[in-house]
Amino acid sequence: MEELKSREIPTGMENPADSFIFNIGLADVIRLTMFGTLISVSRFVFQMPIGVPGHTSVYWMGLLMLGKGLIPKFGAGTIMGIVSGILAIVFGLGKEGPLMAFKCIIPGVLLDILAFLFFNKLESIWVGVIIGALISWSKLLTSIVLGIILDIPMVFLAMGFGYATLLHVVFGAAGGVLAAVLIKRLKPRLSASWQN
């Protein structure tokens, strides 16, 4: 059997599906694409007219962290960010137009960096709180930078910044906690079947 396997794939030649993008296999990329799609769809479906800034972070950051926790590879967050960013443009979410993609990509990239710094221990509640809150805040900061680029009056950006930060941090942390709980439960069940 082993002989047969080695005859199928000559030594030194890698299957392209094993390292599709960012050294992540095709199967994982497809799973990450699914999470990216879920992020955009959830924002579309669960958008509530409650006028509280940052409430979308609960499921946005929750799903982002869940995807990263179940596929703990560097670049996973970025892929989910890119996919959700492209879909956000297609769905016409947000007021920033095509620049809206950055609001999705930046938290994804930051998630990759922070997960690396916390040894990918996203199943820990405290790590979930910290990473969820920080990536949610990065979304707020990106919105402000986009506002400056799009020439939105500074008064709208500066006023209520503290309150907006607090809410983004709280909702992001809540998303992080939910993700940590789900990762803890799902990871042992999926680890066997989700191996490439």
Partner: peptide, 18 residues
């Protein structure tokens, strides 16, 4: 360190606004 950073972020945001 992460929790301290979060505290700093919230405090810094209110300070910046003021």
């Amino acid at each position: 360190i992460g929790i301290l950073l979060l505290t700093l972020v919230i405090g810094g945001a209110f300070l910046f606004e003021k």
